[in-house]
Structures are given as C-alpha cells and as structure tokens.
Design a protein around this nucleic acid. Structure first.
Lengths: 249, 249
DNA sequence: ATTACCCTGACGCTGCGTCAGCGTCA
DNA sequence: TTGACGCTGACGCAGCGTCAGGGTAA
C-alpha cells in the first residue's frame, strides 16, 4: 500500500501544488486519479504522478489547461505548431508590455522632475500623452522629442501661457468681426505660425496631425481646461487669415 | 437635447467601447451618468464624457478599474507612487515573459531540427528541460550549452544509449554481488566518470547537481522511460566503486 | 406596427482560493 | 473522543461577452 498510491494531500505536498488545484484538475478531466478508496478518496498511482509532471512542465511553458489536455490526450498532434503559436502570443505580449513600459517610464520621469504633482495635473498629462499617441505616428513622436530637447525645458513651460494669450487675442478679433485680412489679424496669424514652427520644426506632416487633433478633439481639450469656447471657429478663422496672408498658393 | 447628453449607445459609438462596458462602469461606480431620462435611460453629460476620457487613458496605461477609480476619486493621492508600483509590475511581467520566450525558442529550434516529432518525445524533451532548469543554475545551463556544442550533435544522440548500456552493466555486477573494488567494476566506474566528464567538462558543481537530480528525481526519470529499477541503488553502488578506486581522498 | 434603441438580471470564461458542512481514519 | 485528513458543493476574483425577457422612442 505504502508504495502504490498517494492521497491528494500527499501528492500536493510532494509537488508543491494545492489540494484544490488537484481537485480542479480532476474536475476538468485533466488528471483523474486511476483509483479511489472505498470511501471515495482519490488515490494517485505512479502513472498519475508521471502525468502530473507532464502537466506541470507544460504549464510552466505558459499553456492553458485546455492546451495541456489537448497536448496530452490527443494522439496525432503537432507540438511544433503549438509551440510556434504560443511563442507568437508571448512575443506579442512582450511587445505590448515594452511599449507600455516606455510610456510609464516617460510618465515617471515627468512626475519625478515636476516634484509634487497634484492628481489633476497628472491626469491632464496622461491624456495629452495618449492623445498624442493617437494622433502622431511614432516617427513624429520621436521627432517631437528631439525638438523638445532643442527648444529647452524653460521654453516648454512657457508655451501653454503663450498659446492661451494668443488664442484669446485671436478670439477677440474674431468676435469683433475683424476681417481676417486685416493687418492686426495678419500679425496674429504670423505669431501663430511661428509658434507652430517652433515646436514642429516646420514639419508639415506634424502640423497636419496637430490640425486633425484640434478639429477632432478640440471640444474635449477645451472641456478639460475649462476655459474657452468654439475651438473650431478659432482655428477656422486663423486658417482664413493665413490663406489671406499668402494668396500665391 | 441634442447637445446636452448622450445615450449609452451613442457614447459607445463615439468612444469605441461597448454598451456592456459602460454598463459595467456604471455598476461598479466608476462612471455613473449624471442624469437619467424618465424611462431610466442613462444620459451622459459633457462632464461624464470627460471623465470617461480619463478612465480610458488610465486604462491604456494598464491600471485596473479599481486603481483608476482610486486615481479619479481619492483627493489626496500620489500618482508617482502608483506609476512606480505599476512600472515595477510591468517590468517583472516582461522579465518572466522573456525567460519564457527563451525557453520556447529553444524548444522550437529543437523541434524544427528534429523534424516530425511525436507527442511523447516532445513531452520528454520538455520535462528534461524543466528538470534541468530546476536543478541547474543559469550559469551551469550556459556552460552545458557550450559543452554540447563542443561535443557535437552526433555524440549527443549517441549518449543515451551509452548510458543505458553502462547502467545495465553496472546493475548486472551489482546484482551478482561483485565487490565494488573488483577490477571489472572499477573499469565501469572509470567509464562512468568519463561519460560524466565528457558532458560536464569536469565541472564539480554540475556533477553535484546531476547527483542531486538523480537522487531526487531518479524514480521519476525511470518511470518516464519505463525501463529500470532502483536508480538510487545503482548510483550508490557506483559511488562506492569510485570511492574504492581512489582511497586517497 | 416595425425597428432600433434602452433597461435589468444572470450566467460564462480562467484557474484556482476559500469557506462550509459533512464523512473517515493508512 | 479528537485531530488530521478526505469529500462535495458553492461563491468569489477581473472585466467584461452574451443571451433572455422585457420596456421605449420615432
């Protein structure tokens, strides 16, 4: 008796698994003990133990319980296929996590550099990040990062205020009904273009992405910062002003 | 009405989420619509939409729904802490997956090289891999890999048969009751040592690991290959023979 | 009346953890 | 009798998917 079979508890201790796990494997038919005692106790034989080893090995490779079962029970069965499939899955996971990791690192750096950051600024930062990721291609992101370094830390912090002021001025003219071709508005348009150039380095692809972001998410951005209205109106107005500024195109 | 609020379906379409997801967020209190129609329809206001944006952003960073809720609802709250914690988790995940990936690649290479591999050989291969990983340190694994390359493909394939023959001979002497100091057994002991040296390069740490593996898993190995009995007896016997061979130590 | 919405349950999935209530006893 | 084990349910976890069986809006 002593050598012939093990109870669940004994098997659990030897393998480091829990009794519940073995119960579960029994329930789903992955590992049913070959024998039972009169009282219904599970009795695992040497063969069962061997099978459990196989199960554990396959599980350590990250396969699901169902895959393990297929692997062990289905007679004609291509392991290479399964391994390749699984490998592809794992690689994809790694890629996703690596990207995530990069974003989190960027975020952590920012938070560290900015000192005590209140929760709402944190949230705004994240949203800007995700928005940029949706609207810019990775190459554009790379390029913008370089630009930021060239432009410098100080300048970057000043930028939002510059924009806010400029937008307010444009809106004022717009509401006064000033002609977009008016010199005042033309000056503002130049300033607008200059600001864009400063951060995009004049890359037209990026300017285009910014435009799309603004058109599609303007309302959202505005709702976030809770200050201005009618962003599309403003950008349309400034667009006209720019067009009026260079009638050659 | 048109501008003031959205129904679930509309909001779902705009965000790309499903209605069920929005229902779920409502259920767990993550995003409850500010208003309801007379018939109990959920009506999402601009503020709700903004909050949903935040939720999505945080989710894209991989946070759990509970963490997102804490992030959005708890007033004093350190984002940096959370980001760091999460970053650590993600990095750990990546590490685990990278290790797994390496193992799967090794396995895939082996399967590819071996051509059409039947399921049972596949299983044995895996078990040997996992067993080795439990009993050898990573450095030892590295070292063994180098040895395998030095020894060559052909030799590796011959090895199991050599071992089987040698073990059979040793067992025969043991069962005849031959003295471990007998020249016949001494010759076998030398051959044993030579085989070990061939694959371990004489590294004593590895020899020790092999010994431990054999002592602790011998029964299992034997059960797998279904051929021999009493592995500990054999290794004890050969151990005595080696000791008898060099009484100086 | 049709159609396209909306609602609230409630179960399913993965891989077990964690009781609860009861029987066994190597 | 009392532990230390064993047994079978059954719920819980995350984050929704997916019906089912209704009401509502235009």
């Amino acid at each position: 008796m002593r050598f012939e079979s093990l109870t669940v508890g004994e098997l659990a201790r030897r393998t480091g698994l829990t009794v519940r796990t073995l119960h579960h494997y029994d329930e789903i038919g992955l590992l049913r003990p070959s024998r039972h005692s009169g009282a219904g106790y599970r009795l695992y034989t040497v063969r069962d133990v061997a099978r459990l080893q196989q199960v554990r090995s396959l599980r350590q490779l990250g396969f699901s319980l169902e895959e393990v079962r297929d692997c062990l029970d289905r007679p004609g069965f291509s392991p290479l296929e399964l391994v390749r499939l699984h490998l592809a899955r794992v690689r994809e996971q790694i890629e996703l996590h690596r990207r995530l990791c990069a974003r989190l690192e960027a975020l952590a750096d920012y938070l560290q550099g900015a000192g005590e950051v209140p929760a709402d600024e944190f949230l705004r930062t994240i949203e800007v990040m995700t928005m940029m990721e949706t609207y810019y291609t990775p190459e554009q992101m790379e390029y913008l990062k370089k630009r930021r370094e060239e432009v410098g830390e100080e300048r970057m912090k000043q930028a939002p205020a510059d924009w806010a002021e400029l937008i307010a001025q444009v809106r004022a003219e717009m509401e006064k009904g000033t002609d977009p071709a008016d010199p005042t508005v033309q000056a503002l348009a130049h300033r607008w273009q200059a600001l864009i150039n400063e951060f995009t380095g004049g890359d037209p692809g990026i300017a285009q992405s910014v435009g799309r972001l603004w058109r599609e998410q303007g309302d959202n951005l505005v709702a976030q910062h809770g200050a201005q209205y009618d962003p599309r109106g403003v950008s349309e107005y400034i667009g006209k002003a720019m067009a009026a500024g260079k009638p050659s195109s």
